[in-house]
């Protein structure tokens, strides 16, 4: 219980606290934008098993191989680009996780090592399991991780008011929609197979558009801050 009003925060202090909260929110938005490519690749990575299940039954394996080679190649390119961008600009931000992981790199490697067999297993076992397991169990097991990711992206979109996260969140159900709509694979060269394949691949486009737009935000922010003179204030840049 508070006895005297002098112990309560003054309106000025309350305003300062609210302003600090707003500054933290701006920082969180800028931090998220700074790693747009990585987030985009996370969304793409979650979409990949769904895309591969659809394309794996309809498209040549070359396409799947491409996805698996092209995806890591782009991931590598994105990480290199982020490193180079950080090397050139004076506007830098790292995530708390990055600092913790730098101290213990094993924490980075283990989830990646765990993710690769999961994706390959989904791709290989998906069509087989589809024929042998009850569809509901198969779909439920397939949906757990993607649904967690959708929840995370929606939460981030609402918390940080970044519409790009809605694109990431939308891309995931879109990738799995053909599996949900058509548990039994259609004939490989039918028009239905082509439509389902198109819907599935559209999810990749959404994730790429989201990542590109988020990265553009970061480019604009960081360029404006780089250009700031010593006597200028930067508040409006980040708002």
């Amino acid at each position: 219980m508070i006895e005297s009003s002098s112990e309560l925060p003054t309106p000025l202090e309350t305003r300062a606290f609210d302003e600090a909260k707003r500054a933290a929110w701006r920082a969180a938005r800028m931090r998220e934008a700074s790693r747009a490519f990585v987030t985009g690749h996370v969304a793409l990575g979650v979409c990949l098993p769904g895309i591969c299940i659809v394309l794996g039954t309809n498209a040549p394996f070359v396409l799947i191989a491409l996805l698996f080679f092209v995806y890591p190649a782009f991931l590598f390119w994105a990480i290199r680009r982020i490193h180079r961008q950080r090397g050139q600009s004076l506007v830098k931000v790292t995530d708390r996780i990055e600092v913790e992981l730098a101290a213990n790199p094993r924490n980075v490697v283990l989830p990646i090592i765990a993710w690769i067999p999961y994706t390959i297993l989904c791709m290989l076992a998906g069509p087989v399991l589809l024929r042998r397991m009850p569809t509901s169990i198969h779909l439920a097991s397939l949906a757990i991780f993607p649904m967690m990711c959708v929840g995370y992206f929606v939460h981030q979109a609402l918390r940080l008011a970044l519409w790009e996260y809605f694109l990431f969140a939308t891309s995931i159900p879109l990738a799995y929609l053909p599996v949900l709509l058509q548990p039994e694979p259609p004939a490989p060269q039918s028009s239905l197979a082509a439509v389902l394949g198109f819907v599935s691949v559209a999810s990749m486009v959404l994730a790429i558009v989201g990542a590109a737009s988020l990265h553009h935000r970061w480019e604009v922010w960081s360029r404006s801050l780089d250009d700031l003179g010593s006597d200028k204030e930067a508040g409006e840049v980040a708002s």
Binding site: A16, A24, L90, V91, T94, D95, G235
Partner: peptide
């Protein structure tokens, strides 16, 4: 203090942040 509260709030969201980044987020002068 208001400015220090803003700086700490911003740094609490990040692992590390450059001088320019903190200026951009807080709106403080150099």
């Amino acid at each position: 203090e208001a400015s220090r509260l803003a700086i700490v709030s911003v740094l609490n969201e990040c692992g590390s942040a450059s001088f320019s980044f903190v200026i951009g987020a807080t709106g403080l002068t150099r």
